[in-house]
Design a protein around this nucleic acid. Structure first.
Length: 538
RNA sequence: GGGGCAUUCGUCUAGGGGUUAGGACGCCGGCCUCUCACGCCGGAAACAGGGGUUCAAUUCCCCUAUGCCCUACCA
């Protein structure tokens, strides 16, 4: 227990969460005892504000795994507590924000299985949910601080500020704003205003010490003087992140802010603003950063980091969510595998870690395999078919028809692949059969017994009039009478059939090959046998 | 430069004043097996360093080191 806040968290967790068998969550008020002082507790529960959390991406590109994890922690918390999950678009950086990015982010969130209760398009009682549509609100609040003398106009130009900063650094002083414009007289200000000199609005930083009680880190303390007066409204009238985040979180009645540690230093600015407005801040929880292999903050240069890329590479959203949840959070049990409903049930903020975590592709891959193997036929078809079609476009009609052959083909690889994108390469053998110049086959059939088995089986299979899985096996297995058995029998058969020494189980493969004979691009068993005799026949 | 946060196997982590420091990925070995996988069994592998406090520190405190984040008219 880090502090009193934690205590309360745990209590409410017990009382507000209910899981039905289907894994859906319904908030209920089950009153059962938890603590000696249950009367006081009940009172507290009734006074407890509903959980309202938000994910607030800036739409400047794809959804990044770091952002996805932040969104996930918020979403899991909301769903666990029967609260609301709000999507807010932080697009005050007009130069970098695009509607296209916003769409991609939303698309990726949905793919991961996260839905939101309030947000752009769907609306809600606290909208609008795009910061670019809330300009009047920010302006009004900035002017309020201005009127109250808690903020002031700054007429310094960019060049002047840069010079001041450089000089401060040269003299190894803190590069804080020096407060030049704070000393401006009222007449000077009016003159500049009349002359149309552009200005920003700066927040006058109080000379106080601050302590933040973070749900994950406990008390975080700042001494006075760590911060210079910072800009809240740009000269073009656009508000700055640290300002609108406070205004919005308050107006949207956000109860908990769960975000990455990179925002921890910013929180000081924010609690100053809450104080200036006389608002009660939400509870903060700062999760640690996700790092790349080199232990710096995960970014594009570490390779695939956008959620969309993982999807394209054949990762399952369930695996992604499972992995992301485990990156910086754990239930406290020796458990790695979770479905999404299981995560909702198990999640708690207080078990989020406070030390940075390296993104481990190996473990993600392993989890993907785990989730892949748990897929039902229907699910496997749904996620696998697109990859099949991408590799073999001529299968499009079969997929459209939900032809069972597709499922049979997918099932051959279900236990073997790590990524769905391997499907193309793994099933290549169905549509290609090449023995000439195949060094592996030459070496294999250089062995006398292998060659003999292959020849015999090819001939006997070709002699079958109506090839079915049964008649196939009968013909192939008939060479047992010649003394072939075990590896000496199955290995040559595999080689004969696929032209390689590894691949799916023969038992699964034969029906796929037989029933796929009507697919023009598929190389039939007969053709395989004929080609074999052509290359390795007597 | 200043501020903040962090530090248990290579990686993700459990634990926490007295433990054979537990699990998972990856790695190695074995079993299963027509191959490759899956699965199962086993193995190697960690408390950053130095000071305290204590009968006892990996666990609590301090310092150092290291890493990361913030220090923008980015979010």
């Amino acid at each position: 227990m880090r502090d009193g806040e934690q205590d309360r968290e745990e209590v409410v967790l017990c009382l507000f969460t209910h899981h039905s068998a289907e894994g859906t969550i319904s908030p209920i008020l089950a009153v059962f005892w938890y603590h000696k002082s249950s009367k006081k507790l009940k009172e507290e529960i009734m006074n407890q504000k509903p959980v309202r959390v938000r994910f607030a991406p800036s739409p400047t590109g794809h959804l990044h795994v770091g952002g996805a994890r932040t969104a996930l922690f918020n979403w899991l918390y909301a769903r666990n507590r029967g609260g609301k999950f709000i999507l807010r678009i932080e697009d005050t950086d007009q130069a970098r924000s695009t509607l296209e990015s916003e769409k991609m982010v939303k698309h990726d969130l949905r793919w991961l299985g996260m839905d939101w209760d309030e947000g752009p398009e769907i609306g809600g009682d606290f909208g609008p949910y795009r910061q670019s549509e809330r300009m009047e609100i920010y302006k009004k609040h900035a002017e309020q601080l201005l009127a109250e003398g808690k903020a002031y106009r700054c007429f310094c130009t960019d060049a002047e500020l840069t010079a001041k900063r450089e000089q401060a650094e040269a003299e190894s002083r803190s590069p804080h704003y020096d407060g030049t414009c704070l000393k401006l007289s009222e007449t000077e200000i009016q003159e500049k205003l009349a002359a149309g000199v552009p200005f920003t609005i700066r927040f006058k930083v109080p000379d106080n010490a601050y302590t933040l009680y973070d749900m994950i880190r406990g008390a975080v303390h700042w001494e006075p003087g760590t911060l210079g007066d910072f800009i809240i409204l740009r000269s073009d009238g656009m508000p700055v992140y640290n300002f609108c985040v406070v205004v919005d979180d308050h107006l949207m009645e956000i109860s908990h802010v769960i975000r990455a540690e990179e925002h921890l230093p910013n929180t000081l600015r924010q609690i100053m603003l809450y104080e200036a407005f006389g608002w009660k801040p939400p509870k903060f929880a700062h999760a640690s950063l996700i790092l790349g292999q080199d232990r710096s903050k995960l970014s594009k240069r570490h390779g695939a980091t956008s959620v969309g890329q993982f999807k394209e590479e054949g990762y399952l959203s369930e695996a992604m969510v499972n992995y992301l949840a485990l990156l910086g959070w754990n239930e406290g049990k020796d458990r790695e595998e979770y479905t999404i409903p299981e995560l909702i049930k198990a999640f708690s903020v207080k078990r989020i870690n406070n030390s940075p975590a390296v993104f481990d592709m190996d473990k993600l891959n392993w989890l993907n395999g785990i989730h892949l193997r748990k897929l039902t036929d229907e699910q496997l078809f749904e996620v696998g078919a697109p990859f099949l079609v991408a590799a073999f476009p001529f299968l499009t009609p079969l997929v459209a028809d939900h032809n069972p052959w597709i499922l049979a083909a997918l099932n051959m690889e279900k236990n073997k692949m790590v990524l769905l994108s391997e499907l193309g390469e793994r099933l290549q053998f169905l549509f290609h059969y090449e023995l000439k110049g195949n060094e592996e086959m030459r070496a294999f059939f250089a062995e006398e017994t292998h060659l003999a088995a292959g020849r015999l089986m090819a001939e006997r299979i070709l002699a079958v009039k109506d090839l079915t899985p049964d008649s196939f096996w009968e013909a192939a297995m008939s060479i047992k009478e010649e003394g072939f058995k075990g590896k000496a029998l199955f290995h040559p058969l595999r080689a004969l059939l696929t032209g390689t020494l590894s691949g799916p189980e023969l038992n699964a493969m034969v029906p796929v090959l037989v029933s796929g004979a009507n697919i023009p691009e598929l190389v039939s068993i007969q053709d395989r046998c004929r080609k074999f005799i052509e290359v390795f026949g007597r």
